[in-house]
Nucleic acid binder design. Structure first.
Lengths: 174, 174
DNA sequence: ACAGCCATGTAACTTGTTACATGATTTT
DNA sequence: AAAATCATGTAACAAGTTACATGGCTGT
Protein backbone atom coordinates (compact mmCIF):
# COMPACT_ATOMS: atom_id res chain seq x y z
CA UNK A 1 0.00 0.00 0.00
CA UNK A 2 3.01 2.26 -0.37
CA UNK A 3 2.03 3.94 -3.59
CA UNK A 4 -1.54 4.66 -2.57
CA UNK A 5 -0.42 6.32 0.61
CA UNK A 6 2.44 8.08 -1.07
CA UNK A 7 0.13 9.68 -3.61
CA UNK A 8 -2.29 10.53 -0.83
CA UNK A 9 0.46 12.35 1.04
CA UNK A 10 1.46 14.23 -2.10
CA UNK A 11 -2.14 15.33 -2.57
CA UNK A 12 -2.52 16.46 1.04
CA UNK A 13 -1.14 19.99 0.74
CA UNK A 14 -2.93 20.80 -2.48
CA UNK A 15 -4.58 19.19 -5.51
CA UNK A 16 -2.38 17.79 -8.25
CA UNK A 17 -2.75 16.10 -11.58
CA UNK A 18 -1.45 12.67 -12.43
CA UNK A 19 1.66 13.49 -14.36
CA UNK A 20 2.76 15.88 -11.66
CA UNK A 21 2.31 13.21 -9.02
CA UNK A 22 4.76 10.90 -10.71
CA UNK A 23 7.36 13.64 -10.94
CA UNK A 24 6.99 14.52 -7.29
CA UNK A 25 6.90 10.93 -6.12
CA UNK A 26 10.18 10.27 -7.86
CA UNK A 27 11.60 13.53 -6.61
CA UNK A 28 10.92 12.39 -3.06
CA UNK A 29 11.92 8.75 -3.23
CA UNK A 30 14.63 8.96 -5.86
CA UNK A 31 15.19 7.31 -9.17
CA UNK A 32 15.81 3.83 -7.78
CA UNK A 33 12.14 2.94 -7.69
CA UNK A 34 10.80 4.38 -10.92
CA UNK A 35 7.05 4.82 -11.00
CA UNK A 36 5.29 3.95 -14.21
CA UNK A 37 2.98 6.77 -15.19
CA UNK A 38 0.18 4.36 -16.01
CA UNK A 39 0.22 3.18 -12.45
CA UNK A 40 -0.45 6.66 -11.18
CA UNK A 41 -3.71 6.72 -13.10
CA UNK A 42 -4.80 3.23 -12.13
CA UNK A 43 -4.01 3.97 -8.50
CA UNK A 44 -5.89 7.26 -8.64
CA UNK A 45 -8.92 5.50 -10.11
CA UNK A 46 -8.87 2.93 -7.35
CA UNK A 47 -8.47 5.58 -4.70
CA UNK A 48 -11.41 7.44 -6.19
CA UNK A 49 -13.41 4.21 -6.07
CA UNK A 50 -12.48 3.93 -2.38
CA UNK A 51 -13.45 7.53 -1.67
CA UNK A 52 -9.96 8.71 -0.76
CA UNK A 53 -9.60 11.24 -3.55
CA UNK A 54 -11.92 12.98 -5.98
CA UNK A 55 -11.25 14.55 -9.34
CA UNK A 56 -12.18 18.21 -9.22
CA UNK A 57 -12.72 20.39 -12.23
CA UNK A 58 -10.12 20.52 -14.92
CA UNK A 59 -7.12 22.76 -14.87
CA UNK A 60 -6.98 26.01 -16.81
CA UNK A 61 -4.80 23.91 -19.09
CA UNK A 62 -7.27 21.05 -19.21
CA UNK A 63 -5.44 18.76 -16.82
CA UNK A 64 -7.41 16.49 -14.49
CA UNK A 65 -6.73 17.65 -10.97
CA UNK A 66 -7.36 15.30 -8.06
CA UNK A 67 -7.86 16.36 -4.50
CA UNK A 68 -7.84 14.48 -1.25
CA UNK A 69 -11.16 13.88 0.51
CA UNK A 70 -11.98 13.89 4.20
CA UNK A 71 -11.71 10.13 4.28
CA UNK A 72 -8.43 10.35 2.42
CA UNK A 73 -7.01 12.79 4.92
CA UNK A 74 -8.10 10.57 7.78
CA UNK A 75 -6.47 7.58 6.11
CA UNK A 76 -3.27 9.52 5.60
CA UNK A 77 -3.17 10.55 9.23
CA UNK A 78 -3.78 6.98 10.27
CA UNK A 79 -0.91 5.93 8.03
CA UNK A 80 1.55 8.41 9.50
CA UNK A 81 0.62 7.60 13.07
CA UNK A 82 0.73 3.82 12.71
CA UNK A 83 4.10 2.09 12.69
CA UNK A 84 4.96 -0.45 10.03
CA UNK A 85 4.62 -3.79 11.76
CA UNK A 86 6.72 -6.85 11.17
CA UNK A 87 3.73 -8.71 9.73
CA UNK A 88 3.10 -5.93 7.21
CA UNK A 89 6.39 -6.51 5.48
CA UNK A 90 6.50 -8.62 2.38
CA UNK A 91 8.33 -11.88 2.37
CA UNK A 92 12.03 -11.32 1.80
CA UNK A 93 13.06 -13.20 -1.30
CA UNK A 94 16.72 -13.51 -0.34
CA UNK A 95 15.90 -14.87 3.08
CA UNK A 96 13.51 -17.43 1.66
CA UNK A 97 16.06 -18.37 -0.97
CA UNK A 98 18.71 -19.04 1.61
CA UNK A 99 16.35 -20.90 3.89
CA UNK A 100 15.44 -23.13 0.96
CA UNK A 101 19.04 -23.55 -0.10
CA UNK A 102 19.85 -24.76 3.39
CA UNK A 103 16.87 -27.08 3.48
CA UNK A 104 17.01 -28.58 0.00
CA UNK A 105 19.65 -31.21 -0.61
CA UNK A 106 22.06 -30.81 -3.49
CA UNK A 107 22.14 -27.03 -3.37
CA UNK A 108 25.50 -25.39 -2.86
CA UNK A 109 24.54 -22.86 -0.19
CA UNK A 110 28.02 -21.40 -0.11
CA UNK A 111 27.79 -20.54 -3.78
CA UNK A 112 24.40 -18.89 -3.31
CA UNK A 113 25.81 -16.80 -0.48
CA UNK A 114 28.86 -15.84 -2.51
CA UNK A 115 26.83 -14.87 -5.56
CA UNK A 116 24.64 -12.67 -3.47
CA UNK A 117 27.54 -11.16 -1.63
CA UNK A 118 29.17 -10.06 -4.86
CA UNK A 119 25.95 -8.50 -6.08
CA UNK A 120 25.26 -6.73 -2.80
CA UNK A 121 28.81 -5.42 -2.73
CA UNK A 122 28.34 -3.96 -6.20
CA UNK A 123 25.04 -2.43 -5.10
CA UNK A 124 26.74 -0.92 -2.10
CA UNK A 125 29.40 0.68 -4.23
CA UNK A 126 26.82 2.05 -6.61
CA UNK A 127 24.84 3.48 -3.73
CA UNK A 128 27.92 5.07 -2.23
CA UNK A 129 28.74 6.62 -5.57
CA UNK A 130 25.19 7.93 -5.86
CA UNK A 131 25.49 9.39 -2.40
CA UNK A 132 28.74 11.16 -3.22
CA UNK A 133 27.22 12.81 -6.27
CA UNK A 134 24.57 14.02 -3.81
CA UNK A 135 21.73 15.36 -5.88
CA UNK A 136 18.27 15.67 -4.43
CA UNK A 137 16.82 16.94 -1.19
CA UNK A 138 16.66 15.52 2.32
CA UNK A 139 14.04 12.90 1.50
CA UNK A 140 16.01 11.45 -1.37
CA UNK A 141 19.17 11.37 0.71
CA UNK A 142 17.40 9.53 3.51
CA UNK A 143 16.05 6.99 1.04
CA UNK A 144 19.54 6.41 -0.24
CA UNK A 145 20.87 6.07 3.29
CA UNK A 146 18.21 3.52 4.06
CA UNK A 147 19.30 1.42 1.15
CA UNK A 148 22.90 1.66 2.24
CA UNK A 149 22.04 0.63 5.79
CA UNK A 150 20.02 -2.29 4.46
CA UNK A 151 22.74 -3.43 2.09
CA UNK A 152 25.28 -3.30 4.89
CA UNK A 153 23.01 -5.33 7.13
CA UNK A 154 22.63 -7.83 4.31
CA UNK A 155 26.40 -8.16 3.99
CA UNK A 156 26.73 -8.75 7.70
CA UNK A 157 23.98 -11.33 7.58
CA UNK A 158 25.62 -13.14 4.67
CA UNK A 159 28.87 -13.26 6.65
CA UNK A 160 26.91 -14.60 9.58
CA UNK A 161 25.31 -17.28 7.39
CA UNK A 162 28.68 -18.45 6.18
CA UNK A 163 30.01 -18.65 9.70
CA UNK A 164 27.00 -20.62 10.91
CA UNK A 165 27.14 -22.98 7.94
CA UNK A 166 30.86 -23.54 8.34
CA UNK A 167 30.35 -24.38 12.02
CA UNK A 168 27.53 -26.71 11.01
CA UNK A 169 29.45 -28.76 8.48
CA UNK A 170 32.57 -29.12 10.58
CA UNK A 171 30.63 -30.27 13.63
CA UNK A 172 27.44 -32.32 13.72
CA UNK A 173 24.51 -31.78 11.33
CA UNK A 174 21.59 -29.82 12.72
CA UNK B 1 8.07 -14.75 -6.69
CA UNK B 2 9.23 -16.06 -3.35
CA UNK B 3 6.49 -18.55 -2.74
CA UNK B 4 6.60 -20.06 -6.21
CA UNK B 5 10.30 -20.63 -5.97
CA UNK B 6 10.10 -21.76 -2.40
CA UNK B 7 7.59 -24.46 -3.28
CA UNK B 8 9.69 -25.40 -6.28
CA UNK B 9 12.71 -25.89 -4.07
CA UNK B 10 10.70 -28.01 -1.66
CA UNK B 11 9.57 -30.19 -4.55
CA UNK B 12 13.06 -30.62 -5.93
CA UNK B 13 14.24 -33.57 -3.84
CA UNK B 14 11.01 -35.51 -4.17
CA UNK B 15 7.30 -35.11 -4.91
CA UNK B 16 5.04 -33.73 -2.22
CA UNK B 17 1.38 -32.98 -1.73
CA UNK B 18 -0.03 -29.56 -0.95
CA UNK B 19 -0.65 -29.81 2.74
CA UNK B 20 2.83 -31.16 3.27
CA UNK B 21 4.32 -28.24 1.37
CA UNK B 22 2.82 -25.73 3.72
CA UNK B 23 4.14 -27.57 6.74
CA UNK B 24 7.62 -27.75 5.29
CA UNK B 25 7.62 -24.19 4.06
CA UNK B 26 6.78 -22.98 7.53
CA UNK B 27 9.28 -25.35 9.05
CA UNK B 28 11.99 -23.75 6.93
CA UNK B 29 11.05 -20.10 7.16
CA UNK B 30 9.50 -20.04 10.60
CA UNK B 31 6.14 -19.02 11.95
CA UNK B 32 6.57 -15.30 11.31
CA UNK B 33 5.37 -15.51 7.74
CA UNK B 34 2.46 -17.93 7.95
CA UNK B 35 1.45 -19.45 4.65
CA UNK B 36 -2.26 -19.82 3.99
CA UNK B 37 -2.98 -23.35 2.81
CA UNK B 38 -5.24 -22.08 0.07
CA UNK B 39 -2.32 -20.25 -1.39
CA UNK B 40 -0.35 -23.41 -1.74
CA UNK B 41 -3.00 -24.83 -4.02
CA UNK B 42 -3.46 -21.66 -6.07
CA UNK B 43 0.27 -21.37 -6.49
CA UNK B 44 0.58 -25.03 -7.48
CA UNK B 45 -2.15 -24.57 -10.10
CA UNK B 46 -0.38 -21.57 -11.55
CA UNK B 47 2.92 -23.38 -11.58
CA UNK B 48 1.26 -26.28 -13.35
CA UNK B 49 -0.16 -23.83 -15.88
CA UNK B 50 3.39 -22.54 -16.40
CA UNK B 51 4.83 -26.03 -16.79
CA UNK B 52 7.01 -25.92 -13.68
CA UNK B 53 5.30 -28.76 -11.85
CA UNK B 54 2.95 -31.55 -12.73
CA UNK B 55 0.52 -33.52 -10.61
CA UNK B 56 1.47 -37.17 -10.74
CA UNK B 57 -0.78 -39.99 -9.72
CA UNK B 58 -2.47 -39.93 -6.38
CA UNK B 59 -0.91 -41.14 -3.20
CA UNK B 60 -1.71 -44.54 -1.70
CA UNK B 61 -3.77 -42.40 0.65
CA UNK B 62 -5.43 -40.50 -2.16
CA UNK B 63 -3.37 -37.33 -1.81
CA UNK B 64 -2.50 -35.30 -4.88
CA UNK B 65 1.25 -35.45 -5.28
CA UNK B 66 3.03 -32.83 -7.36
CA UNK B 67 6.44 -33.22 -8.85
CA UNK B 68 8.86 -30.78 -10.38
CA UNK B 69 9.34 -30.82 -14.16
CA UNK B 70 12.48 -30.31 -16.22
CA UNK B 71 11.52 -26.70 -16.78
CA UNK B 72 10.82 -26.35 -13.08
CA UNK B 73 14.23 -27.69 -12.18
CA UNK B 74 15.87 -25.32 -14.65
CA UNK B 75 13.95 -22.41 -13.18
CA UNK B 76 14.95 -23.39 -9.68
CA UNK B 77 18.60 -23.57 -10.65
CA UNK B 78 18.33 -20.19 -12.31
CA UNK B 79 16.82 -18.87 -9.11
CA UNK B 80 19.58 -20.17 -6.89
CA UNK B 81 22.34 -18.93 -9.16
CA UNK B 82 20.94 -15.45 -9.70
CA UNK B 83 21.39 -12.85 -6.98
CA UNK B 84 18.47 -10.80 -5.77
CA UNK B 85 18.98 -7.40 -7.37
CA UNK B 86 18.15 -4.08 -5.86
CA UNK B 87 15.45 -3.49 -8.47
CA UNK B 88 13.77 -6.80 -7.57
CA UNK B 89 12.97 -5.64 -4.08
CA UNK B 90 9.57 -4.28 -3.32
CA UNK B 91 9.15 -0.70 -2.31
CA UNK B 92 9.87 -0.28 1.36
CA UNK B 93 6.78 1.16 3.01
CA UNK B 94 8.60 2.69 5.94
CA UNK B 95 11.11 4.44 3.70
CA UNK B 96 8.38 5.85 1.51
CA UNK B 97 6.45 6.92 4.55
CA UNK B 98 9.37 8.85 5.92
CA UNK B 99 10.23 10.37 2.57
CA UNK B 100 6.65 11.57 2.31
CA UNK B 101 6.60 12.81 5.89
CA UNK B 102 9.68 14.88 5.16
CA UNK B 103 8.21 16.18 1.92
CA UNK B 104 4.63 16.91 2.96
CA UNK B 105 4.06 20.03 5.04
CA UNK B 106 2.26 19.77 8.35
CA UNK B 107 3.48 16.29 9.18
CA UNK B 108 5.39 15.82 12.40
CA UNK B 109 8.28 13.74 11.12
CA UNK B 110 9.79 13.40 14.55
CA UNK B 111 6.61 11.76 15.80
CA UNK B 112 6.57 9.34 12.88
CA UNK B 113 10.16 8.37 13.61
CA UNK B 114 9.46 7.95 17.31
CA UNK B 115 6.38 5.82 16.73
CA UNK B 116 8.30 3.56 14.44
CA UNK B 117 11.26 3.37 16.75
CA UNK B 118 9.09 2.16 19.61
CA UNK B 119 7.50 -0.48 17.41
CA UNK B 120 10.82 -1.65 16.00
CA UNK B 121 12.30 -1.84 19.48
CA UNK B 122 9.42 -4.06 20.59
CA UNK B 123 9.92 -6.21 17.51
CA UNK B 124 13.58 -6.53 18.31
CA UNK B 125 12.87 -7.69 21.84
CA UNK B 126 10.36 -10.20 20.59
CA UNK B 127 12.84 -11.52 18.05
CA UNK B 128 15.55 -11.79 20.66
CA UNK B 129 13.19 -13.70 22.90
CA UNK B 130 12.29 -16.02 20.05
CA UNK B 131 15.96 -16.59 19.39
CA UNK B 132 16.67 -17.47 23.00
CA UNK B 133 13.93 -20.08 23.04
CA UNK B 134 15.74 -21.49 20.01
CA UNK B 135 13.41 -23.97 18.42
CA UNK B 136 13.84 -24.95 14.80
CA UNK B 137 16.74 -25.90 12.57
CA UNK B 138 19.46 -23.92 10.90
CA UNK B 139 17.21 -22.40 8.26
CA UNK B 140 14.74 -21.05 10.80
CA UNK B 141 17.53 -19.65 12.91
CA UNK B 142 19.03 -17.84 9.93
CA UNK B 143 15.65 -16.37 9.05
CA UNK B 144 15.32 -15.09 12.59
CA UNK B 145 18.82 -13.66 12.48
CA UNK B 146 18.02 -11.88 9.24
CA UNK B 147 15.05 -10.21 10.84
CA UNK B 148 17.16 -9.15 13.79
CA UNK B 149 19.85 -7.70 11.53
CA UNK B 150 17.21 -5.84 9.57
CA UNK B 151 15.50 -4.48 12.65
CA UNK B 152 18.83 -3.29 13.99
CA UNK B 153 19.63 -1.58 10.70
CA UNK B 154 16.23 0.05 10.85
CA UNK B 155 16.91 1.40 14.32
CA UNK B 156 20.23 2.80 13.20
CA UNK B 157 18.57 4.40 10.20
CA UNK B 158 15.86 5.96 12.36
CA UNK B 159 18.55 7.44 14.59
CA UNK B 160 20.29 8.71 11.51
CA UNK B 161 17.06 10.30 10.26
CA UNK B 162 16.58 12.11 13.52
CA UNK B 163 20.12 13.42 13.44
CA UNK B 164 19.78 14.63 9.87
CA UNK B 165 16.43 16.25 10.54
CA UNK B 166 17.71 17.95 13.68
CA UNK B 167 20.67 19.34 11.77
CA UNK B 168 18.27 20.48 9.06
CA UNK B 169 15.87 22.43 11.27
CA UNK B 170 18.58 24.11 13.32
CA UNK B 171 20.46 25.27 10.23
CA UNK B 172 19.04 26.28 6.85
CA UNK B 173 16.26 24.37 5.08
CA UNK B 174 17.31 21.98 2.34
C1' DA C 1 -21.45 -37.18 19.11
C1' DC C 2 -18.32 -33.54 18.54
C1' DA C 3 -14.01 -31.06 18.18
C1' DG C 4 -10.11 -30.74 15.68
C1' DC C 5 -6.80 -31.79 12.43
C1' DC C 6 -5.76 -33.58 7.60
C1' DA C 7 -6.54 -32.55 2.90
C1' DT C 8 -8.11 -30.31 -1.49
C1' DG C 9 -9.82 -26.92 -3.88
C1' DT C 10 -12.32 -22.48 -5.83
C1' DA C 11 -14.03 -17.72 -6.19
C1' DA C 12 -13.07 -13.38 -5.47
C1' DC C 13 -10.32 -9.72 -4.57
C1' DT C 14 -6.03 -6.53 -3.88
C1' DT C 15 -2.00 -4.15 -5.25
C1' DG C 16 1.42 -3.68 -8.39
C1' DT C 17 2.81 -3.53 -13.03
C1' DT C 18 3.33 -2.99 -17.96
C1' DA C 19 2.10 -2.38 -22.84
C1' DC C 20 -0.45 0.08 -25.65
C1' DA C 21 -3.42 3.91 -27.75
C1' DT C 22 -4.06 8.70 -28.17
C1' DG C 23 -3.30 13.37 -28.68
C1' DA C 24 -1.34 18.14 -27.39
C1' DT C 25 2.51 20.91 -26.83
C1' DT C 26 7.34 22.03 -26.99
C1' DT C 27 11.91 21.72 -28.55
C1' DT C 28 15.37 20.89 -32.01
C1' DA D 1 9.19 18.38 -40.03
C1' DA D 2 10.68 15.28 -36.58
C1' DA D 3 11.66 14.10 -31.94
C1' DA D 4 10.85 14.61 -27.33
C1' DT D 5 8.15 15.66 -23.56
C1' DC D 6 3.62 16.47 -21.46
C1' DA D 7 -0.64 14.34 -20.39
C1' DT D 8 -4.46 10.91 -19.84
C1' DG D 9 -6.16 6.77 -19.89
C1' DT D 10 -7.37 1.45 -20.66
C1' DA D 11 -6.76 -3.55 -21.02
C1' DA D 12 -4.66 -7.21 -19.31
C1' DC D 13 -2.08 -9.74 -16.38
C1' DA D 14 0.91 -11.48 -12.23
C1' DA D 15 1.39 -12.66 -7.53
C1' DG D 16 -0.32 -12.66 -3.18
C1' DT D 17 -4.06 -13.32 -0.16
C1' DT D 18 -8.27 -14.78 2.15
C1' DA D 19 -12.87 -16.70 2.87
C1' DC D 20 -15.44 -20.29 2.02
C1' DA D 21 -17.08 -25.15 0.74
C1' DT D 22 -16.23 -29.87 1.21
C1' DG D 23 -15.14 -34.18 3.10
C1' DG D 24 -12.33 -37.85 5.61
C1' DC D 25 -10.17 -39.29 9.59
C1' DT D 26 -8.85 -39.22 14.70
C1' DG D 27 -9.18 -38.62 19.42
C1' DT D 28 -12.03 -37.66 23.44
Amino acid sequence: MSIRHGLLALLSPEPRYGYQLRTEFEASTGATWPLNIGQVYTTLSRMERDGLVSPGEEDDQGRVVYMITEAGRAEMERWFSTPVAQADRPRDELVIKLAMAVTAPGVDVGRVVQTQRTATMATLQELTRAKRSAAGGTAQRLVLDSKIFQAEAEQRWLDHCEAVLAANTEGAQS
